[in-house]
Design a protein around this nucleic acid. Sequence first.
DNA 1: GAGAACAACGGAACAATGTTCCGATATTAC
DNA 2: GTAATATCGGAACATTGTTCCGTTGTTCTC
Lengths: 202, 202
Amino acid sequence: MKTPSTRATKKSTATKLPPVRAHAKQNLSALLSAAAEVFATSGVDAPVREIAERAGVGLGTVYRHFPQRSDLIVAVLQSHVEACSDAAAVLTSEYEPEEALARWLHRLMDFVGAKRGLATALHSGDPAYAALPGYVMERLGGALRKLLDRAIAVKAVRSDIDAEELLWTVATMCRGPYGEKPAYARKMVDVLIDGLRYGANP
Amino acid sequence: MKTPSTRATKKSTATKLPPVRAHAKQNLSALLSAAAEVFATSGVDAPVREIAERAGVGLGTVYRHFPQRSDLIVAVLQSHVEACSDAAAVLTSEYEPEEALARWLHRLMDFVGAKRGLATALHSGDPAYAALPGYVMERLGGALRKLLDRAIAVKAVRSDIDAEELLWTVATMCRGPYGEKPAYARKMVDVLIDGLRYGANP
DNA sequence: GAGAACAACGGAACAATGTTCCGATATTAC
DNA sequence: GTAATATCGGAACATTGTTCCGTTGTTCTC
């Protein structure tokens, strides 16, 4: 986040900013994308060694940046949550309120569908993931709330919907009773979106 | 299931029944209960060695009876499903239809609540567990259907409830949005049961 | 009851994988 | 250019699932 050149000249002063080597951050982002690819390909249970190899770094480097395996999983999930959340702003600037909302719900669906394995890990009870549910709910719920309010403001959709409830509903619709593939999920979400529109002008 | 003494005297006949050593089954049931205890205590990720030690047998014995770790998990789950299912018959013979239904739903709740870790393993996508969901649904759904029909017959509860839907509903109520503890679950199930009663005489 | 056949057993050995550790390397400050 | 040190790579270690085989004890036959 901060560049090494912004540091003070003297290193002996009390507030010592440890110099951050240039390639360290490159490695970190390379690790993140490598991990995302491997998780998508081989599942969240893929060996750390496979991720290190894909990123072209050593095992030590992986554990330097992510002391535990779960830290890597958390980081990948967070980056994807951020991407999904950020997509809301882009869609807002590019589409009408109603269309932006619909497109983002589809985006959310893709996100949830792709994270099947991650979700399983999430619910495993491992304390390493304890903070994630709240974070996901807050981040994505906030994004959805803005989209929703904007669509409500122009009377494109009904006004009695809570963002977190809608978020949870769509997320739930993407996982069948036992976690099967969401073959019918897209259709159901479309129906749900139509339902939002329908109620706009009762 | 069959005793060694029921075998034919000659072993050289075509239909060779391999003699089942006496203590083998003792070990098997000891393994099952040991596994159940360990899973309950240390979670489903507990090492096989811990189960072997608790059962007082060697590692080889565990793998002789359960070639894979997942077989042990499946066996424990099945035995508990059977126990829960069998409880329906006992309750039927001991209580009035309405009371039996209510008590069994509480029994079901305990079962689901205790199986938190097992459920996570179930949804992991491992093909070893592929057949379980259908089995559980059929076995417990069948048990519930009998209880339900009996209660409906005496007009103790409303008649428009499907057994599998009710089963799934109660099971779902025992897991919060992210799999938290079911602090409020018992109350909610009680409310649900009251709802069943309330609709009996509209 | 003695002996043979062999099912069952116990645990060492192997394989896969998460994690730690440390010498080697490369970058930065001066 | 040189020293300091952040970073790196991978060997080494620990844990755990799984396999393998020599040993043990039971069952059957005589």
